[in-house]
């Protein structure tokens, strides 16, 4: 990203605005072109997972703290929605629950602050396992706090009163809205000093502390925002399904999917996770259709994961952008200052 020589770095560029506009239009128009139910369903999940991946990216990609138990918050959001249904009558027209969503998001974000503060006191790899522990604890609570969650029997929400022929649509648009919100936040992060702070934490946290970066506050903030969005996604999902079970609300496969999508598309970029979701979700549906059975997912995910880590660690988007950048620098003869030593062949992120 070329910065102008004078003045401050811009918040919006013409190219960026165009991209955003085209994307929004695509989001609205695309499913209308293929109005089958299974398409709407797949697009719903794609957009939902994209939203979660973009928000996971804040803490896992930008900050370098991979939250491997993020599904815990998805489930918490889902059960929060379920208990709202149980305790209040928010179902007047089908749209009310969607307006309650921000409250769930806020609630999740708030409880994430103390959790993040404790969990992020440690190195990134210990943090990863702490989040796995969190997921496991959440799952256990989901099974055992029967009064609150209905235990293994699951929890029911009322079925949304939308017409059957357009049933998926409100949910799709809610998820799309969530995605745009997440992307907006991610975009904001990259255009402000928050992005630099997070990147410095990922690059070398101790050094970041040493040059005065407010590492704890920034990390916890990223975590809280990420959790808030994930919680909202869980709420939408719960409403969509109408009935939730703990093993699906707190399913490790959810985390694995969003981590993979983020890394495939390109962590620490705004569009990377979206790309990853757009590739992986349909691929997963296809795989499920031809092979079935959830066990094969694990091996497929693991294999793709390992391949990406070893061959394309930055993900598709950054690698592509970096090649383009190198090419343009070469033609301009700007490579005079660039070292060709092994350490210099990294990709770009910011």
């Amino acid at each position: 990203m070329k910065l102008s020589k004078q003045g401050a770095s811009p918040f919006f560029t013409r190219a960026g605005l165009t991209r955003g506009g085209v994307f929004i239009v695509a989001l609205i128009v695309m499913p209308q072109l293929f109005p089958q139910h299974w398409i709407w369903n797949m697009m719903f999940f794609t957009v939902l997972y994209a939203a979660m991946s973009v928000s996971w990216n804040l803490v896992g990609g930008f900050a370098g703290y991979p939250s491997l138990g993020h599904a815990a918050f998805f489930g918490i959001g889902a059960y929060a929605m379920a208990s709202l249904f149980k305790s209040t009558h928010i179902l007047t027209n089908g749209w009310q629950p969607f307006f309650v969503m921000p409250l769930i998001g806020l609630g999740c974000a708030v409880i994430a602050i103390p959790i993040g503060y404790i969990a992020m006191r440690v190195r990134a790899d210990v943090f990863a396992i702490v989040t796995i522990t969190l997921l496991f604890v959440a799952q256990t609570l989901g099974y055992n706090l029967k009064g609150l969650t209905g235990g293994a029997q699951g929890a029911g929400l009322s079925v949304a009163p939308f017409r059957l022929d357009i049933f998926e649509q409100p949910f799709y648009f809610a998820a799309a809205f969530l995605l745009l919100l997440a992307m907006g936040i991610a975009y904001f992060v990259t255009k402000t000093k928050l992005g630099m702070a997070l990147t410095s934490i990922r690059a070398d946290e101790d050094k970041a502390r040493g040059v005065g970066v407010r590492t704890t506050g920034v990390k916890v903030m990223a975590f809280a925002v990420s959790v808030g969005i994930t919680g909202m996604a869980g709420g939408i999902w719960a409403y969509y399904l109408g009935f939730i079970y703990p093993q699906f609300a707190f399913d490790p496969l959810i985390t694995i999917a969003i981590v993979l999508m983020t890394f495939l598309g390109g962590r620490a970029t705004v569009w990377g996770p979206v790309l990853g979701a757009a590739i992986l979700m349909p691929a997963q549906q296809l795989l499920a259709y031809y092979v079935g059975g959830s066990q094969i997912y694990l091996i497929a995910y693991a294999a793709i994961f390992l391949l990406i880590m070893l061959l394309l660690p930055r993900g598709i988007l950054p690698t592509f952008l970096n090649k383009r950048r190198m090419a343009s620098m070469a033609t301009k003869g700007d490579l005079s200052g660039v070292s060709t030593s092994p350490v210099a062949t990294g990709g770009i992120n910011s």
């Binding site: 370098g64 991979p66 694990l298 995910y301 994961f305 390992l306 880590m309």
Partner: peptide, 15 residues
Amino acid sequence: ATELSILITFALALL
């Protein structure tokens, strides 16, 4: 190394 090692060992666990 450190960052990717976490994910690689995680992927190994999944495998």
